[in-house]
Design a protein around this nucleic acid. Structure first.
Ligand code: FES
Ligand code: FES
Lengths: 144, 144
DNA sequence: AATAAAAAAGACAAAAATATCCTTTATTCA
DNA sequence: TGAATAAAGGATATTTTTGTCTTTTTTATT
């Protein structure tokens, strides 16, 4: 469904949203440990998200990544697009070079419904909406 | 969603179902051309499908791949499982090592619905059910 | 029996995804 | 100002996926 980079990216964004209330910063090490991802790879993903403005960063002592309040309204769809592009939202399920209404592949109609459900899920879900449940330990971002 | 190998595999199975009525054989070259896939790579995928009994094959002159009538009832889910395994049907959407009802990731509930829709689509779709529409040129297995 | 055709199998190659390491830049604090 | 800290960036390494090439095996035909 998503690339590894994208899975880490989504989990990281949700983690940062929860851990960086009123501008506190979350360090790379903290993120990698918090979502159980390889730290150096996570760095690359955070750089991409930061360049695209989905997350803020500050260098130096007490630096790290953070989000302001409205940034926690960023949707999972935005994160996915930033990392995996929008192939998932627009591409053909059977790998034809493009999804084409006029020249549909065998599963086009059904697949489009599913694709739209996925998009709808991701577009209506914000990285900041799990803060309380994560804090309560109801939801999890890693297994260990 | 699916790996390239799986996309080719599904398209090939649908192609063979349509092209191999009453035991006629479809050659590798024919398949690769018919679904626009790289021939040598397609060969590997066909070998896997053949080994797993999802398609029959005969060597030698006038050999090739074919399906008997009940084989055209093979579902897309069977093809996907044969090539990509069942991670798509059971795995966690955010890449946690397992999907766990008791320790759900943030999108677990919604993702499970989508996952089940995908599985349902694939389990209720048979490789042989597109024969007529493909013949009429309503459906397509390649773009060129 | 010899030849040709076609899939099976094995070895190899290229590309992409995943992951790591090292250096540079910006920032804070003593 | 100097040292320490942490992200940014660049180069490299590993693994997986995708793809190709060659040889072998099986079968049909002459
Ligand atoms: S053409 Fe395949 S999903 Fe639209
Ligand atoms: S735990 Fe992530 S989908 Fe179930």
């Amino acid at each position: 469904m998503f690339s590894k980079a994208c899975e880490y990216g989504i989990r990281a964004m949700i983690y940062i949203a929860q851990r960086s209330r009123q501008g506190e910063r979350v360090g790379l090490k903290d993120i990698a440990q918090g979502i159980d991802s390889p730290e150096a790879f996570m760095a690359k993903i955070m750089q991409a998200l930061s360049r695209q403005g989905l997350v803020q960063s500050v260098k130096g002592p007490h630096g790290g990544f953070y989000m302001d309040t409205q940034a926690s309204k960023i949707t999972l769809a935005q994160v996915v697009r930033a990392i995996d592009g929008d192939h998932l939202f627009t591409g053909c399920g059977l790998g034809l070079t493009e999804c084409n209404e006029k020249k549909p592949c065998p599963i086009h109609d059904e697949f489009k419904l599913i694709r739209n459900k996925i998009r709808s899920l991701l577009e209506t879900t914000q990285v900041g909406e799990f803060n309380e449940l994560l804090e309560k330990g109801v939801l999890h971002l890693k297994r260990i």
